[in-house]
């Protein structure tokens, strides 16, 4: 019963997300905002259902983690849309990214992970949750950079979007390293050391460094704002690809 419900909710969210993409592209701001809140409700119920069904928060299974990430992206997007509803910024990019993430769930089994014993540990749960949230925040940052790419250079809107995209990148990096802190505690208690010489630890190290790369590229090196934006997006896209693969 609950498995059918989780599939129905997943499909419902996907449908609503697609409608939101169309509304955003057509610049129907008001209806988009209303549909957006319905979508948020749908994905929120889906995540709660995952918890009720499995006894754990979304962790590493593709089906559950994609929906958790969509929840964060939609939530951030709607907050931003609501705050800036009077500004002349059309931002369908976060809807497009959300729909892509939701669709990616089809590449794996559409089912929720069972309650593995390690999920019962607070540091394991925190590691997976913080990592999911951080990737969602970094993805939202990508959507903001993409929006700013369309705006005219020299305008306040462009600078505003670029500044906040950089803020969200930093927030994503902080959440990511907080997840790594939990992961290190997990490793310390389960394997007797905070660091492991293994593929997962190397990839995590690379992801954290990539998240900080954008803020270490001095604006004075590249005068063109759009090139600056592209150079900020590339490391984030690599992080997302590393996470998904």
């Amino acid at each position: 019963m609950t498995e059918n419900l989780s599939l129905s909710l997943f499909c419902c969210t996907l449908f609503l997300l697609t409608i939101n993409v169309l509304l955003a592209i057509l610049k129907k701001k008001k209806i988009n905002l209303i549909f957006g809140f319905i979508t948020l409700l749908s994905v929120l119920i889906a995540v709660i259902n995952i918890y009720l069904q499995s006894g754990h928060l979304p962790m590493s299974g593709t089906f559950e983690k994609m929906q958790n990430m969509v929840l964060i992206i939609v939530l951030l997007g709607l907050i931003y849309e609501f705050i800036n509803r009077k500004k002349d910024i059309n931002a369908p990019e976060f809807w497009i990214i959300a729909v892509i993430f939701q669709t990616l769930a089809f590449f794996d089994e559409l089912k929720v992970d069972p309650m593995f014993y390690m999920y019962d540990n607070i540091f394991v749960a925190m590691f997976f949750q913080l990592r999911l949230i951080s990737i969602a925040v970094l993805s939202f940052s990508v959507s903001m950079y993409l929006t700013s790419l369309k705006l005219e250079t020299g305008t306040d809107e462009k600078s505003f979007m670029m500044h906040h995209a950089a803020n969200f990148t930093l927030l994503g990096a902080i959440l990511f390293i907080a997840g790594e802190f939990s992961g290190s505690m997990w490793a310390q208690l389960a394997y007797g050391d905070s660091w492991r010489w293994s593929k997962n630890f190397f990839t995590s190290g690379a992801m954290f460094l990539l998240a900080l790369l954008g803020s270490h590229l001095a604006p004075s090196w590249i005068k063109n704002k759009n090139v600056q934006i592209l150079l900020s997006i590339i490391p984030l896209l690599i992080i997302i690809i590393l996470f998904l693969t």
Binding site: S198, K199, L209, L213, H216
Partner: peptide, 23 residues
């Protein structure tokens, strides 16, 4: 310099990913 920082961060990323690939 910040230029060296950027170069070293890119190098470290490449080294880490190479380590993962080698496994």
């Amino acid at each position: 310099s910040l230029k060296l920082t950027a170069i070293l961060v890119i190098l470290l990323v490449a080294i880490m990913l190479t380590g993962g690939f080698l496994t």
